[in-house]
Simulated assay, not measured.
Amino acid sequence: MMEAMELPDLFDVSEEQPERLAHIVEHYAALLDVGNRDGYQVCAEFLRAVERVGYTFSYGLDGVPYGLRLL
């Protein structure tokens, strides 16, 4: 029986991010680093932005995104 191949978290392998996605990630990473906004709200905006280009990720109440992957 073949097991499903687990895809890498694109947050961990940024060199594999397409340029359009990388620009979005850089923008929102900077917003999260500054920390003067609610991280949970920033992640909600961030998620909408990456979904528009065909990707998704998860995040918790702590406002830390993880699991960036293709939709």
Rank of each mutant, 00 (worst) to 15 (best):
M1V: 13
M1Q: 10
M1E: 10
M1G: 06
M2P: 11
M2Y: 12
M2I: 04
E3G: 09
E3S: 10
A4T: 11
M5T: 07
M5W: 06
M5G: 08
M5F: 14
E6R: 10
E6Q: 15
L7M: 10
L7R: 15
L7C: 09
L7A: 11
P8C: 07
D9E: 13
D9S: 13
D9I: 03
L10E: 05
L10G: 08
F11K: 13
F11V: 04
D12Y: 03
V13N: 10
V13R: 02
S14N: 05
S14T: 06
E15Q: 07
E15W: 02
E16D: 10
E16A: 01
E16K: 05
E16T: 03
E16C: 04
Q17V: 00
P18K: 04
P18W: 02
E19I: 00
R20S: 03
L21F: 01
L21T: 01
A22W: 02
A22V: 05
A22S: 13
A22R: 11
A22M: 09
I24V: 15
V25A: 08
V25H: 07
V25S: 03
H27E: 15
H27S: 14
Y28R: 01
A29T: 03
A29L: 08
A29Q: 09
A30W: 03
A30T: 13
A30V: 15
A30F: 05
L31M: 12
L31P: 00
L31S: 05
L32G: 02
L32D: 05
D33L: 04
D33N: 08
D33F: 09
D33W: 10
V34S: 00
V34W: 09
V34D: 02
G35C: 01
N36S: 11
N36H: 14
N36R: 13
R37S: 08
D38Q: 06
D38L: 08
G39R: 14
G39C: 06
Y40K: 14
Y40W: 15
Y40D: 04
Q41C: 07
Q41N: 14
Q41E: 15
V42F: 04
A44M: 08
A44E: 09
A44R: 11
E45W: 09
F46R: 00
F46V: 10
F46L: 05
F46H: 06
L47N: 04
R48E: 09
R48N: 04
R48S: 03
R48L: 08
R48T: 10
A49L: 13
A49G: 07
V50Y: 02
E51S: 03
E51A: 00
E51F: 00
E51C: 00
R52V: 02
V53R: 03
G54F: 14
Y55A: 01
Y55S: 06
T56S: 01
T56I: 00
F57I: 15
F57A: 09
S58P: 03
Y59K: 07
G60K: 11
G60M: 11
G60Y: 06
G60E: 07
D62A: 07
G63M: 13
V64Q: 07
Y66D: 04
Y66L: 05
Y66T: 10
G67T: 12
L68C: 12
L68Q: 05
L68F: 07
L68A: 09
R69A: 15
R69T: 14
L71R: 12
